[in-house]
């Protein structure tokens, strides 16, 4: 195979205004992949370590989220709109069949009167039931803990949606056009939150986390749960946190702080 890298002159086309904006929020890292090919990205706070191109996701990493419910404003859904924008999830105005990868859930405790609001998305379980039940192996867990649907194998049986305790998955009920190049999705297959895998693989934060930070909420922290020096690992070690339906023993990678259930 005589693979020759093709150079497309990215640096020139990269929108300077956007670049400045991105730089302002997180600092732009640039990595030279090959002469002329430059990789831009926003570094994750604290633990910048983009995987080298050509290497596989590592089982030494487990990506996770820590969501502080006390910092989540019930009137805010910036994380949701960021997800829709990033992944091109604009619906058809039919709420029952339009997909939702992340949603804000309001909970109210009838005994105490406490009300809370929190985002719920795919919980990226260590023992995902969706992966167990999938007949073709389309549902799978990547080495670094991200649970995905391989749409090349998905036959649209929707068994994973029956098995998921979090109602995290959506079935694409209609034709989709103008997908994002980095987020392919199509009619007749099942999809869910990918933790913005295209961003994570290039050392950027998931869109929801970035949006929450931008909005000054700071309720969402993304990082490697297996790296003892990462911010998320330090925080879950220091403060009590919990998983939704932790009783099911699925060990989700998404954890919540100050959740009153």
């Amino acid at each position: 195979m005589s693979g020759k890298m093709k150079h497309t002159g990215i640096a020139a086309e990269f929108n300077p205004a956007r670049r400045k904006f991105l730089g302002a929020i997180a600092g732009v890292a640039s990595v030279t992949l090959a002469p002329g090919v430059i990789l831009y990205g926003i570094t994750r706070s604290g633990d910048a370590r983009a995987r080298k191109p050509g290497t596989a996701a590592s089982p030494d990493v487990r990506w996770g989220l820590l969501i502080d419910v006390n910092h989540c404003d019930s009137g805010c859904d910036k994380c949701v709109s960021a997800c829709v924008e990033e992944n091109g999830l604009q619906g058809h105005g039919r709420p029952a069949t339009d997909p939702q990868w992340i949603r804000k859930v309001k909970i109210h405790d009838p005994d105490t009167g406490l009300s809370q609001s929190l985002p719920v998305m795919c919980q990226h379980c260590a023992e995902p039931p969706c992966v167990d039940v999938c007949p073709t192996g389309a549902s799978f867990k990547r080495a670094d803990g991200i649970v995905l649907v391989d749409r090349h194998r998905c036959i649209g049986c929707r068994y994973c949606m029956m098995a998921c305790p979090y109602k995290a998955r959506s079935f694409v009920h209609e034709e989709i056009e103008d997908q994002k190049t980095y987020a392919p999705r199509g009619k007749g297959t099942v999809e869910a939150c990918t933790l913005c895998i295209h961003r994570v693989d290039s050392d950027r934060l998931p869109a929801c986390v970035e949006a929450c930070n931008d909005a000054g909420g700071g309720a969402m922290l993304f990082g490697d749960l297996k790296d003892p020096n990462s911010e998320i690992a330090r925080r879950v070690a220091r403060y009590a946190s919990q998983q939704i339906r932790g009783d099911l023993g699925l060990d989700p990678g998404v954890r919540y702080r100050n959740l009153s259930t």
Binding site: M5, G54, A56, A57
Partner: peptide
Amino acid sequence: RDETVRQGIRGKPF
């Protein structure tokens, strides 16, 4: 495609 989707290998030419 299988390498990228299932193992997360990116940056290859095809």
